[in-house]
Amino acid sequence: MPIWLEAAIRSVSILIGLFIITRILGKKQLSKLSFFEYIVGITVGDIAGTMSTDLDINLQEGITSILIWSLFPVLISYISLHNKKFRDFVEGNSTVFIKNGKVLEQNLKREKYTIDELMEQLRKKDVFRVADVEFAVLEPNGDLNVLLKREKQPLAVGDVFPNLPSEKEPQTVIMDGKILDEPLATVGLNRGWLKTELDKQGVAVENVFLAQVDSYGQLTIDLYDDKLNVQQPQEKQLLLAAMKKVQADFELFALETQAEEAKQMYEKNAKKLNDLLQKITPLLKN
């Protein structure tokens, strides 16, 4: 067998083997590389590289060492999945740096963190006053996570409109001009509905590059032809405007009418509409 052929066969089979091994190791390894996993990755890669080029190395030895280097982390992650103590030992514990707004100096010292470094990490999180921090913790992977005091936390939608219904993820119903039936069914709609909505906007399915349905059942589309302007759904704004108009009309009628009974009826309904407006506005405004 010529040397190049042997090298080629080795390389290809090692590539396939490594591919399978990385699949077994899973996604977690990628997002959160501990120092140990970092070293394992480099070593496995180095062994594989040497094996594919250096034909003097016995295949048996190479494969054995690769298997040990790659399966050992799998074993460790399996054990730590089931045993909390082992997990703490392998992955480390988080250290609390600030608690109840007070800096814990002992913990800083234990992690060999100076107050300058802590402040630098805080500034990375846009916190410039240590006094704004309620709780800060150093994660095992070296990140510092910060919980701000209640009065310093950014305003969320829920603070302004309590009891807001949750917004579900939008579903993509047309991609590359083709209708995707499964997402359509997920939101409880069908092709007939989609066709009506597209007709309303005056476009054909073939011209649509992307179309999504939001959790209110509104369709937003992007066309292949970027020169054409697509109307964004305005139903909500129109509905809100119509409600405001009728409410104002009622108040006007209440003032104009001479009949006492009608006056009361208009006033009552104007109030009803006003209450409804208050309640429904957060749903219609976004």
Binding site: N163, V187, G188, Y216, G217, Q218, E235, A242, K245, D249
Partner: peptide, 26 residues
Amino acid sequence: ASLKSIHASFQQFALTSTDEKAQRAF
């Protein structure tokens, strides 16, 4: 007529919304 149109819009939103709370509100 405006009220009827508002009624229809609410009906439509009640049918097409996916969140139960929103459905109920509409």
